[in-house]
């Protein structure tokens, strides 16, 4: 059983399980699926600072924080027990294009992720180790990829009123045309970044 779970899952299984989250949350408590709202609730809990947008009864929305805590625990469980530790079956075209930009996909350097245990994971299985590495946090690379990138995620999702889960999955499931507009804009922004802006950034910093 564990061996089956450790293998990478096919897209239809992952898609099915993500899709089923929508009715599950509705049936177990009348909750609309959405994750980026949790960032707003964290602001409301930690630093409402008299901003009307953060002064609401966040206790009513606490389920959302339980949900994202679960997502974090799920990530931990997978890393500890269900990791296949094999590289992703990526399109060779993508690998070649990224290598031309200085991102090494085949880097086999091992990093101890959870200190104090023998469990080792290869960073490059999911993320390029040249960028997503604790050594880059206080460099220009870290600033662009983590600080600026993260800011755009938080600012953009709240401005758009939702993220991939709230708009692309929940909104489209409920046939909401504003969610289709938002989803198209998410895609447009991503296409623009990956094909035009990111190559320029990588050229400058790597």
């Amino acid at each position: 059983m564990i061996e089956i779970l450790q293998k990478p899952w096919p897209w239809y299984l992952s898609g099915l399980l993500i899709g089923l989250t929508v009715p599950t949350l509705l049936i177990i408590g009348n909750k609309n699926f959405g994750i980026s709202s949790s960032l707003r609730h964290i602001c409301a809990v930690c630093l409402p600072a008299n901003i009307p947008f953060f002064n609401y009864n966040w206790r009513k929305e606490i389920w959302n924080l339980f949900f994202v805590a679960g997502v974090t625990i799920g990530g931990f469980i997978t890393g500890q027990f269900l990791s296949s530790n094999e590289p992703i079956d990526l399109n060779p075209k993508t690998i070649a294009a990224l290598e031309a930009q200085g991102i090494d996909y085949t880097d086999k350097t091992e990093y101890t992720v959870h200190s104090g245990s023998d469990h080792k994971l290869k960073y490059d299985v999911l993320m390029p180790s040249a960028i997503f590495n604790t050594d880059t946090i206080f460099t220009l690379t870290g600033f662009i990829f983590f600080v600026v990138g993260g800011f755009m995620i938080g600012f953009g999702t709240r401005y758009a009123g939702g993220c991939t889960s709230g708009h692309a999955i929940m909104g489209l499931s409920n046939l909401q045309w504003p969610s289709l507009v938002a989803t198209c804009c998410f895609m447009a922004g991503g296409i623009l970044m990956v094909n035009f802006i990111l190559p320029a950034i990588l050229k400058a910093i790597l």
Binding site: G149, G150, I153, R158, Y159, G161, G190, L192, I197, I201
Partner: peptide
């Protein structure tokens, strides 16, 4: 949904992650 959506899309492309 348009402006914020584009900003989030840019962030998604660079970090490789949504929330």
């Amino acid at each position: 949904q348009i402006i914020g959506g584009l900003i989030f899309g840019l962030g998604w492309g660079i970090t490789g992650a949504c929330p």
